[in-house]
Amino acid sequence: MDELLALVDINLHDIGVIVTNCSVFSPTPSMTSMIINKYKLPVDVKSFNLAGMGCSAGLLALDLAKRVLLAHPNKYALVLSTENLTRSLYYGNQRSMLVTNCLFRVGGSAVLLSNKWKDRKISKYKIIHTSRSQMGAIDMCYRSVYQEEDCKGTIGVSLSKDLMQSAGLALQHNMKLLGPKILPFSELFLYILNGFMMKISPNSKIKPYIPNFKLACDNICIHAGGKAVVRAMELALNLPFELSEPSHMTLYRFGNLSSASVWYELAYEESKARVKKGNRVWQIGLGSGFKCCSSYLKALKDIDLRSSSQCWADCISELPVQLPSDEGGHH
């Protein structure tokens, strides 16, 4: 947040909304209160501290901040997404719980939102749409990422074999919410026609039509939940490596950064100078619950952070690296 506030020229008393999220760490006072105290924010700031909401909480927090700003004009909103794994390190020997020790890492991101018209000239992106899908009513999805005790009473987070299926269901529902808002008419027509044909011929071998979301996006940031997650998303959306590269490289360099991962991925694209004015960016967050959250952004200017990126500057020139064949054989 220090780095963010050093880049912008704002009066801290104009910050009207602050949203923080950290899934497995919930201190007292809250992280929101810590930030308010550190920066001496105004007493009427609308503060929200999200805990236990998994890796999709970064985009969920963005959605919340956007909605609160709509009701409070002429204000700024700060969104801080992070994770603190130290308190939840698993010390047992159950394999399904040891995965989180190997995969997750600590990271953080800070985003400043504005609903002031004058800030349009200096803003990097405009939020076009956000969508949220919650599959918690389905037991399989609810228990796919689950904190519990092992047979010896040691607490850990268990990843079930139903995780990929749960992610697929959440993504499918989220695409149904977002698709009508962002897809071109031609794709919507084909999807509706396919559904109609399947309905009138239920016993036919007609396969469900998956719209081509590549036509609606120039940059895609898929939550770097693991190589299997990213690979499954590639297959589901029929993505070339160029579009999934930010997710693969974030996982390679930083691991699973939980709710902050989609912002590291966007910073990767910016550091590669691949975000141009008018580009449409789709961020996809997947997390426990099971949830899928999306944000659809429009770039308001060309962005080139090759010489100034805080997190990628030391390695961006060496990426992408060649991936092992079990990740799809891409280069």
Results as ranks from 00 to 15, higher is better:
Y209L: 11
V229N: 04
K214I: 07
L188N: 13
I222G: 04
G225A: 05
Y191D: 15
I206K: 07
S204M: 11
N212Q: 07
C217V: 03
I206P: 05
I192W: 03
D218I: 07
E187K: 09
A228Y: 00
N194P: 06
M233Y: 02
F213L: 09
I222E: 03
K199W: 01
Y209P: 11
S201E: 01
G225I: 02
V229E: 03
N212C: 15
N212R: 08
I192S: 04
L193W: 05
S186L: 13
N203V: 00
N212Y: 01
L188D: 06
M233F: 05
M198Y: 00
P202K: 12
E187Q: 14
I192A: 13
A228E: 05
F189Y: 07
K214G: 02
C221Y: 03
K205D: 14
K227I: 11
F185K: 15
Y191H: 12
N219T: 12
M233T: 08
L235Y: 00
G225Q: 07
N219A: 09
F185Y: 05
N194Q: 07
K199A: 13
I222M: 14
S201A: 10
E234M: 14
A232K: 09
L235N: 11
L193T: 09
I220W: 02
S204W: 01
K227G: 07
S186C: 13
C221F: 06
K214P: 01
F196S: 14
S201T: 12
G226M: 09
N194C: 12
I206S: 08
V230H: 02
G195Y: 03
F213W: 04
K207L: 05
D218P: 03
E187W: 03
N194F: 03
I210C: 11
Y191K: 08
N219P: 00
V230N: 04
P202N: 08
R231T: 08
V229A: 04
A216V: 05
L188F: 01
M197L: 14
C217A: 15
H223N: 10
K227L: 11
E187D: 06
I210D: 00
H223I: 13
